[in-house]
């Protein structure tokens, strides 16, 4: 079995496992797994009660690795996340007590209920996969993934996630309401006991780390890279956007595209991968301007329009008719 086939098999198992809990949301589940394999962090944004936390926890449970769950509250302190040095009277030394982020998978629930100060404490660990407390840097173990959930910013008692923070999430997904059939099935399965209790891990952290290495071998041609850059550049020029996508967004897009290709057991990235991922990877980083808001154009629509207008890369004969 080739490494790509192994990858496809493992991710298929994980996906099926999660879908035992989250029904009818295979796209969202797939994006979540894509982000996991692309070494990114996932932001799940939606109204309360649609299964954001369920998704985060079921993904975490499916992998046999250390999982920590942090409930973000307005009084949560940065040190609760990163850890704190405590004076040990016995040894007469300061001893580091790791915070909530010291795990393979960190589920940050309702991340936008914490103050921006606390949210910002995640910046270093998400990007650099390390924590610095009292001038001492502690490495986080791989794989490391933050799965955060948040309510839309319009909801009461929430703080807007800073742009820098949002930019560190590789993708944002929305759960959306389940279709009636799925909701009915959910009533049956969730009414008796917590279905998460029965969820068994189907893989472990070490295997995920290997799969991440496989994803890194996926080939991405210059033309597709150029396409990624063109997509992000186009957001910067769009008259509807106040803030376009950052170069980090290009990087995330390409990494996610690699993982997406690997999920399809393909050892090369095609423009379709970028098109599939452009909205989840880019939309949460963009800020629309007033005109767009008045016109009812959200980031998702703007990205879709840009994708339609951009020509597909064709390395052999650029500029010819059709493609």
């Amino acid at each position: 079995m080739s490494s790509f086939e192994t990858l496809a098999a493992v991710t298929d198992r994980v996906g099926k496992n999660i879908e035992r809990i989250i029904e009818g949301k295979s796209d969202v589940v797939r994006t979540a797994i894509t982000v996991l394999l692309a070494e990114g962090h996932l932001l799940i944004e939606d109204v309360p009660g649609v299964g954001k936390t369920m998704l985060a926890k079921s993904l975490a449970r499916s992998i046999d690795c250390s999982v920590k769950r942090i409930q973000f509250t307005p009084d949560l302190l940065p040190s609760d996340l990163t850890g704190v040095s405590i004076y040990n009277r016995d040894t007469r030394e300061f001893e580091f007590r790791p915070g909530g982020v010291f795990a393979n998978i960190v589920v940050g629930d309702e991340i936008n209920r914490a103050s921006p100060k606390t949210q910002s404490a995640l910046l270093e660990c998400m990007e650099e996969r390390q924590v610095t407390v009292d001038s001492t840097t502690y490495e986080l173990t791989a794989p490391f993934m933050v799965i955060a959930t948040q309510n839309p910013i319009e909801m009461e008692g929430t703080y807007t996630l800073p742009e820098a923070q949002r930019d560190r999430f590789m993708a944002r997904v929305s759960m959306g309401y389940p279709v009636p059939r799925s909701e009915l099935a959910m009533l049956d399965s969730h009414s008796a006991a917590n279905p998460l209790d029965d969820l068994e891990p189907v893989t472990d952290g070490a295997e995920i780390a290997k799969l991440v290495d496989v994803v890194r071998t996926v080939h991405i041609s210059d033309a597709v890279k150029q396409y990624a850059v063109d997509i992000t550049s186009a957001t910067r020029r769009s008259p509807d956007l106040r803030l376009g996508a950052s170069p980090r967004a290009s990087l995330h897009l390409v990494r996610a595209a690699r993982a997406h290709a690997a999920l399809e057991a393909r050892d090369y990235v095609i423009p379709d991968d970028l098109q599939t991922l452009a909205v989840p990877v880019l939309a949460h980083r963009l800020i629309t301007n007033l005109e767009a808001q008045m016109g009812g154009r959200g980031s998702e629509q703007i990205i879709s329009a840009l994708l339609r207008s951009l020509p597909i890369p064709d390395p052999t004969s650029p500029g010819r008719r059709g493609d």
Partner: peptide
């Protein structure tokens, strides 16, 4: 878009061969 050798963000060198 697909001229990979063109540095991105620099607007010269459109390919008009078509």
């Amino acid at each position: 878009v697909s001229r990979s050798e063109a540095p991105w963000g620099v607007g010269d060198g459109i390919d008009t061969s078509g």
